[in-house]
Design a protein around this nucleic acid. Sequence first.
RNA 1: GCCGAAGUGGCGAAAUUGGUAGACGCGCUGGACUCAAAAUCCAGUCUGGUUCACCCCAGGUGCCGGUUCGAGUCCGGCCUUCGGUACCA
Length: 822
Amino acid sequence: MRYPFSEVEKKWQSYWEENKIYKTNLSKKENKLYCLVMFIYPSGAKLHCGHWYNYGPTDSWARYKKLKGFNVFEPIGYDAFGLPAENYAIKTGIHPYDSTMKNIEDIRVQLKNMGNMYDWDSELMTCVPEYYKWNQWLFIQLYKKGLAYRKNAPVNWCPSCQTVLANEQVLADGSCERCGTTVIHKNLTQWFFKITDYAEELLSGLDKINWPEKTKLMQRNWIGKSTGTEVKFKIEGHEEDITVFTTRPDTLFGVTYVVLAPEQPLVEKLTKPEYKEQVHAYLDSVKSLSEIDRTSTTKEKTGVPTGSYAINPVNGEKIPIWVADYVLATYGTGCVMAVPGHDERDFEFASKFNLPIRKVILAPGTKEEDPLNEAYTEVGKMINSGSFSGIQSDKGIDALSDFLEQEGKGKRKTNYRLRDWLISRQRYWGTPIPVIHCEKCGEVLVEEKDLPVELPYNVEFSTSGKSPLTTNKEFMNVTCPKCGGEAQRDPDTMDTFVDSSWYYFRYLDPHEHDRMFNKKLSDSWTPVDMYVGGAEHATMHLLYSRFIHKFLRDLGMAHSDEPFSNLIHQGTITNQGAKMSKSKGNVVNPDVFISKYGSDVFRLYLMFMGPYEAGGDWSDTGITGVDRFVQRSYDIFLRFENSVINNPAPDKFDVRSLSEEEKSVYRKINQTISKYDEEINNFRFNTAVASLMELINELSKNLEACRPALQSYVLERFACLLAPVAPHLGEECWHMIGKKGSVFEHANWYAVDPEALTVDRVTVAVQVNGKLRATIEVPAENDQESVKALAFSADAVKKHIDGKTVVKEIYVKNKIYNIVVK
RNA sequence: GCCGAAGUGGCGAAAUUGGUAGACGCGCUGGACUCAAAAUCCAGUCUGGUUCACCCCAGGUGCCGGUUCGAGUCCGGCCUUCGGUACCA
């Protein structure tokens, strides 16, 4: 009989929902396990295979933990604000609120068909005032602590569309994706969160969490701590100094020019009148270049002199000041001292513009008069460096730093590559910023009692250069909370990463009215025990949420230092080599597979495809394999359900009393539990499913020859192994053998009988010079001498050692016997 | 460019501390069952050579080199593909 997946899945889904099987008792914190997937971004109308790949296997892991006795909390929600809904509105005229709500409804239906054990009472979405009110509250707290501030920052500006573009909307050649016009950078006053205040702790905290090493490494590099020295260069004919940051003060005597980033405010002041035209033309030419292009080491260096000169603080030398786009305004001071002899980029630049290249570090084994054909960036003996000549350059770093500090010409400094978090968006579909601008009082916070600042429904999307919110006068025009005079709301909205940086707290009680979240619950349920989501979030979402978590801790609202104790990245499911996304039009809709094979088969297939953290290119060949597995499993239960119902299983069997077939089955079921346990626990679903396939192969062959009590022993265990990876089938099989209720209602995990796993004979590979020549069977208890005798007596081995001298023998117990001959 | 990964049969992959490369599955080939088909079951399936066949021999984990008794695994140098690069999330 065909396994009636459709009926079975519907039946159990209703049973789960009616009996609230997955409602987590949050007041009970013993054995708590908070299992979280990155919430859903409902920009497409439907979930695609990539979503399933994230949610299905993670749910199987959570179910496995539930069977093992954990009190599991597995919530789901929607990260509902963001750019795509707004672009969709511009294109179609459908309001973002309407399209988003419709999408969420459709997605909810799909999620219910997946049959995951979500606690639906905790469902949340970010685009409703009851949620985003707390983004505004958070903003206010950050502001009060001096961690929210405004400054100028560039945006992508399309001069033709008169609008701000996201990086994604700028094509590779720097043109606007809508009209093809070259996009330029334009400065706007924007809000920032001061994440850099937490840079040091964001770095050191990484040592305390169990995250993939690669993710921690990416965050370390992103934060980019470097210790060095700030050095002041006087400017000829100016009061002001140029301050540069360098990690190599030992090369100061080799500085032959100074470079300013094009955006550095000093550029305007230092450019001599006769150089203005050239410099302005240069600044215009770099306006449209991306940072990636500018810092590319393969791109030819460009730059212009300002006509001004700086004075090298260590030798008083007069050196030219240039402007070049390979220096970024966002790192350090936006000014660098150029040492062409010992920095690759400076070498290239100096070579091109005929600036002097001076050797001040001598590479070991070279002479002072040898020409420098490329920058030497390693340690060596300092030369041409005044009184510092002769010392090793790594010692020279400290020596020069000390000297500069004593002379008041420099100061040791720790720099971070990490930049403050720009949260302003000149868009509609996001959280309004709770600030009012008053001509008299300046920027004034909205009072907490007046929150939320509700996002108005009626705005115009296609406007010229202004945030859409400015088109709603009723929203914009307010009275100043301080002076009562006429004032205006801030027209921008917040980056959606603000929403996602604290949602895991909110799940615990998403309808809480008076607080951001319930502290009592969060103290017992956070940090999140297992967080599963894409590696593409390594440096942004996963860093922002760590920052906000630490900030909330400092407010006394959270008791832990880190939000996510354990982290796993599922791989990306690509289609035709590209990440699935609606904009690329390459999404694979899972619904067709669900209606053809059922949710369990689809989930099993995703798990079986390959290593969870690798992902892969989508292909449905092979789904029939797991479909067959499900059918064969069902068949086994159909065949033996009656003998199981009438024959209760003992806790264990005496191995010696079993027949050969029984022994084989008994061993296999115990081996499978042991292997499966280890694999699922570590998110290795593919090999866990493979172990079940091996089990079903064994059972098809030998279960019939087993006594009913052993059949019973095997099948109740098998049903529990099926339940996490194929929950509907697991429930059904559990029922077929006479069990009551849901298998997930109680801890249901069986201990392994260690007796069943012991073997008395093992196979040892015999190698000659590392090449396999024979295999021999030996007792598991053996010594080298007894194995040696057998190894040397094998014909294939004799053939390869005859007439040669044995020089070495290596025995790795119960694995390899290697004979080395000459 | 920079940061982080990955590359193994016809295909998805396995091999957890360096120890028998290819578990499990797809596909394919042959067979059984059937009037026939589907479904199911059984057997075979890394490549080349030799052989009726079993065996046996040689080669083989992106490329080049190294360490080791032994390398898919460790080291150095490349190539290709993917993720991120601060306004997609």
